[in-house]
Design a protein around this nucleic acid. Structure first.
Lengths: 130, 130, 130, 130
DNA sequence: GTGGTCTAGACCACC
DNA sequence: GTGGTCTAGACCACT
């Protein structure tokens, strides 16, 4: 079961956080086709957002074809986004955890780590010996 | 010189993107105290946002004490956010680049990689044995 | 300029009527890429629905990639659905108008006509000599 | 025998689809006074909707006086909606089929065709030379 | 003044 | 009890 966490301090719309967390869960394999998402009411109880906010997120996911709402029954995963095999993910994750451990030892905060990954993914060359 | 990129499709407010990019640049050492930020006009020309949006971002950075506006001269970096030594950053970055290379080889897209890092930083245990 | 008409008696959700009318206008060539849709407030004034209903319709169109919302400026057509050349449409329309004229002469109401077209498009064979 | 098709993707309530399909069948002469509608069970088996949904549709048709439920026997057509003679319908249908054939040759999709008919019936003048 | 987000609360369709 | 629609109204981001 996915568990939503909504952070209202970052300026990122609540419904978008829900959408992204579902996408993330799909990518990581925590959610697979056929799984049922938490009901609107469960999300409301757990995260404190308004029911309509959850509905908007679920509807957006439905329009994109990732989930399917069955009236009176719930909302179900219809497709997935995962691109790599689970074994590979486990291996990559283990390596990344080791790296994160080292980075934290070096005093980096999570925000630093995110920034660094962003820079690497973007291929920015600053900071590299030309 | 920092170069701003504004993506209006993600729902994240434009002025917040600017703020975050300055913070990221500070964390990565691309910006250091004394550096001048691009002028409002330059940002407008480069990213197409409205001047007021840039002003709002710079004002927000000033309120937090990270930059300082000098009338008629521009906006200058006043403090930094970097937490680790440059040498360490270079080393960590090199390691991370190697890992990213492997992850991409394995077929992961950038969104997968971000999701994975998010999971690791959050300490989620799903997918890990025990 | 498109002009929306919302009929609240048919059970068809208001926001869906708006969506369909935009799609219809795109198919008929009344709307083309670059055109601006009426503002939310104009639609509200003209059709009496709630602003959020219009926003929902516009957002749905945006998610499908047909329109694009520019903050502070309006909502603009981004793609089209038209499949046939305008000349052909004019010709086909003229023929259809003649047929509709005949059908109405014969006493058919609009609902009859719609039913007949539905049957023909579905390829139902009842009523045809085997 | 009428055969119901229920499409749960269009937002149109299931029971309304059933009602409309009965009305359409009456208009096209597929159903005539005295005919028996499929039993609730048959509809459920064929279309997968909930029995209560079918009952609601039949109840609505009964309220309008179009059908009549006979306990233990089934639901029977009591009145009709057809407005034109069967011969005329056959003729008009043949003409329409020819036109639809031409329209499809021209590359129009069903949605285009519906849009065009809607425009013609509404008497919209756009696209016509005055 | 433009669209975007969110809340609160009512009512409907369906299981 | 499930999701779906709509309203009313407030506040925000942006031009």
């Amino acid at each position: 079961m996915v568990e939503f966490r909504v952070d209202r301090s970052g300026g990122l719309p609540a419904y978008l956080q829900l959408v992204q967390q579902v996408r993330e869960a799909l990518r990581l394999g925590w959610l697979a086709p056929g799984d049922r998402l938490p009901t609107v009411r469960e999300v409301v109880a757990a995260s404190g957002v308004n029911p309509n906010t959850v509905l908007k997120a679920y509807r957006e996911l439905e329009l994109v074809g990732l989930v399917e709402a069955r009236q009176g029954s719930g909302t179900y995963v219809k497709a997935t986004l995962g691109t790599a095999s689970p074994e590979l993910m486990v291996e990559l994750r283990a390596q990344l955890e080791k790296w994160v451990h080292g980075a934290r030892q070096a005093g980096l905060e999570d925000e630093d780590i995110h920034a660094l990954l962003g820079a690497v993914l973007a291929g920015d060359m600053k900071g590299k010996e030309s």
